[in-house]
């Protein structure tokens, strides 16, 4: 999907469901490979699954045929959201990958929240909440990087 293509709310939901699921899988994989930081990675994985539930539930409870759901989203940067993890990854590399993922994700969610203002308040609020959660991870990852 290019940046110029206007996206439906449904397409955005498919994207964020996948993003949270992929993120959970990414952190679970990290936890299984790296002893150090395992607890944090598992927390992130669990949180991503909760994020997914929260976002889908909010969408399903809010979507209405009378909202401008079909033409809401434009110009979103969807690059860099797929994370392929090398087999022989070091802790440092893993943390950098994770930090980059979180930066992309939190920025995307903030943009989605901004562009969904015309939908009911619950939708931008939900995206903003997840944006903040993912932003908070950056700080945690940064601290881990400094310690690594």
């Amino acid at each position: 999907m290019g940046q110029d293509l206007a996206l439906t709310t449904s397409a955005i939901m498919s994207l964020v469901e996948k993003l949270e699921e992929d993120s959970a899988a990414f952190y679970e994989k990290l936890a299984s490979r790296l002893e150090e930081g395992r607890g944090v990675f598992l927390e992130f994985a669990e949180e991503s699954r909760k994020n997914k539930i929260h976002l889908v539930r909010t969408y399903q409870e809010t979507i209405s045929d009378a909202l401008e759901a079909t033409f809401s989203f434009q110009g979103l940067d969807l690059s860099g959201l797929e994370v392929a993890m090398p087999e022989d990854i070091s802790l440092q590399e893993a943390l950098e990958m994770a930090r980059s993922l979180e930066q992309k994700a939190s920025s995307l969610y903030a943009r989605i929240a901004e562009q969904s203002q015309s939908l009911l308040a619950t939708i931008p609020r939900a995206f903003l909440r997840v944006a903040r959660k993912r932003e908070a991870r950056i700080e945690t990852l940064q601290e881990m990087l400094e310690r690594a």
Binding site: T8, S10, T62, I63, D65, L67, A69, T70
Partner: peptide, 12 residues
């Protein structure tokens, strides 16, 4: 109808 529209209908 599109899936967004259909979900909107279900919700209503």
């Amino acid at each position: 109808k599109t899936i967004d529209e259909a979900r909107g209908e279900t919700r209503r």
